[in-house]
Amino acid sequence: MEKLSRRNFIKNTSAGLLSVAILNPIGKLFASNKKEIIPTWNELIDFARWCPTVHNLQPHLVKIVSETEAELYYDPSRLLPVGDSQSIFATVAMGIFVENLTIASGIYNKKIVIHEIQKPINANATTITLFAKLKIEKCDVIEKLSRDLILKRKTSRLHYDGNPISNNTLHKLKSQTEEFDHEFFSTSDLNFIKSIIEMNQQTLFEDLESELIRDELDKLFRYNKEEAETKKDGLWAKCMGFSGSLMKSVFTNHEKWTKGIRKSLLSHNYKNSFKGTSTVCWFGGDFENTDHWLRAGRMFARNWLLLTQENAYLQPFGSLITNENAYKQINEKFTQPTNNKKIWMIFRAGYSNEPSRSFRLSTDEIIIK
């Protein structure tokens, strides 16, 4: 019995070793192929081009250098010399774009790393300018966000349904924010939210008093579908929730809307567009230089997709940050971040019908040949 058992053991062991010897090279081959798959820049850009940018201007351009290297440029004609003179939020948008590239590459266990930043974005530049160098690298962390969320994400300026963002979702946002050393705040106090909406409306009228701001915005608005579809950028009236003719009149015949019943109607319509808002959120973080702005953008990109994952939408209150008087007021009213960090983004979040999608530049238009 003992000899028979030993003989069977040797026989079985030999067979097992033979199987390993035969199959292991194949296993290694498949494992090797999986590790070596590198996404194309075209594929990644085809996703990332749907990311949000300031006023949907899409200043990013990419020059492919090699399979794993690329250069990130900006088009100064797609910047805001008046509304964003230091290109702070254009830089935040660059961070959002790069983080969307990373999320799109996650299924390959890859990430996009900024290796070199040339100079801060200059709103007064006259030619397409190199901003940073990018590289596809291996990522040791499993990507938790599906890249399909990039295609699903939209800004909603519609009426929200009155339901606040759930505590579970707020907790996810807070945790994600802290991973980037930022702080997250939110409120569902309806009286406080009402005061924010009123402040936002007042800020709009104050901004529209500036001829320079009006002229800059007028060039960005797409008052009809044909114009929006042709230019594939800017603020399409349909996505803004107002008729194109009304918006065009406000910008080209501004004096008619500065007093009397027209001003009251415009004010009422604008405030009414925020109906159903039950959650307002804001971020605080280091916000002094290009590195800070890029990091803020990367964080915002992920939080926006987290909301999308929960079938929720957001709408930034950009003017509350960029308008000097409004920013002074929010620093008096809002809970402040610690350690001299700054509030740099305020937005409403909630649930609405599916909003319209803005047009985007094609992948070929973003890639520099």
Score class of each variant (00 low, 15 high):
residue 35 K to L: 06
residue 235 L to K: 02
residue 92 V to T: 08
residue 53 T to P: 02
residue 364 D to F: 05
residue 105 S to G: 11
residue 278 S to E: 07
residue 358 S to Q: 12
residue 152 K to H: 12
residue 232 K to C: 13
residue 306 L to N: 01
residue 19 S to L: 15
residue 263 K to G: 00
residue 170 L to S: 02
residue 183 E to V: 14
residue 66 S to K: 10
residue 18 L to D: 01
residue 153 R to K: 12
residue 23 L to C: 07
residue 320 L to C: 09
residue 195 S to G: 05
residue 79 L to I: 02
residue 305 L to G: 06
residue 147 R to Y: 13
residue 133 K to Q: 09
residue 103 I to A: 10
residue 75 D to V: 01
residue 335 T to L: 14
residue 101 L to A: 12
residue 68 T to I: 14
residue 246 L to N: 05
residue 126 T to P: 14
residue 57 L to D: 00
residue 311 N to K: 14
residue 303 N to I: 15
residue 24 N to V: 04
residue 291 D to E: 08
residue 230 T to E: 14
residue 241 G to Y: 07
residue 286 D to T: 14
residue 295 R to A: 07
residue 350 G to T: 07
residue 362 S to W: 07
residue 283 F to Q: 02
residue 39 P to L: 07
residue 282 W to A: 02
residue 304 W to K: 06
residue 254 H to G: 09
residue 44 L to V: 00
residue 197 I to S: 05
residue 150 I to E: 00
residue 309 Q to D: 15
residue 118 Q to K: 15
residue 369 K to H: 06
residue 116 E to P: 08
residue 278 S to L: 11
residue 264 S to A: 04
residue 5 S to W: 08
residue 219 K to F: 09
residue 40 T to F: 06
residue 149 L to R: 05
residue 7 R to F: 13
residue 296 A to P: 13
residue 209 E to S: 07
residue 340 N to R: 14
residue 12 N to T: 11
residue 113 V to I: 14
residue 185 F to R: 06
residue 217 L to V: 11
residue 52 P to M: 10
residue 247 M to R: 04
residue 316 P to I: 12
residue 273 S to Q: 10
residue 181 D to S: 15
residue 303 N to E: 04
residue 100 N to L: 14
residue 275 K to E: 10
residue 289 N to F: 00
residue 9 F to Q: 08
residue 369 K to W: 00
residue 182 H to W: 00
residue 262 R to Y: 03
residue 208 L to N: 10
residue 140 D to R: 07
residue 53 T to Q: 13
residue 192 F to N: 01
residue 273 S to Y: 07
residue 19 S to I: 15
residue 171 H to Q: 08
residue 276 G to R: 06
residue 42 N to R: 12
residue 166 S to G: 05
residue 169 T to R: 00
residue 185 F to C: 07
residue 168 N to T: 14
residue 273 S to D: 04
residue 159 H to A: 13
residue 148 D to W: 13
residue 280 V to H: 01
residue 320 L to K: 09
residue 331 N to T: 02
residue 131 F to D: 08
residue 282 W to K: 05
residue 219 K to Y: 11
residue 259 K to G: 00
residue 289 N to L: 08
residue 319 S to V: 01
residue 186 S to V: 12
residue 133 K to W: 04
residue 328 K to L: 13
residue 166 S to E: 14
residue 75 D to I: 01
residue 279 T to H: 06
residue 297 G to R: 04
residue 285 G to Q: 04
residue 93 A to R: 05
residue 326 A to D: 09
residue 201 Q to T: 13
residue 284 G to Y: 01
residue 85 S to R: 11
residue 366 I to K: 01
residue 17 L to M: 10
residue 173 L to G: 02
residue 304 W to F: 13
residue 140 D to H: 08
residue 93 A to D: 15
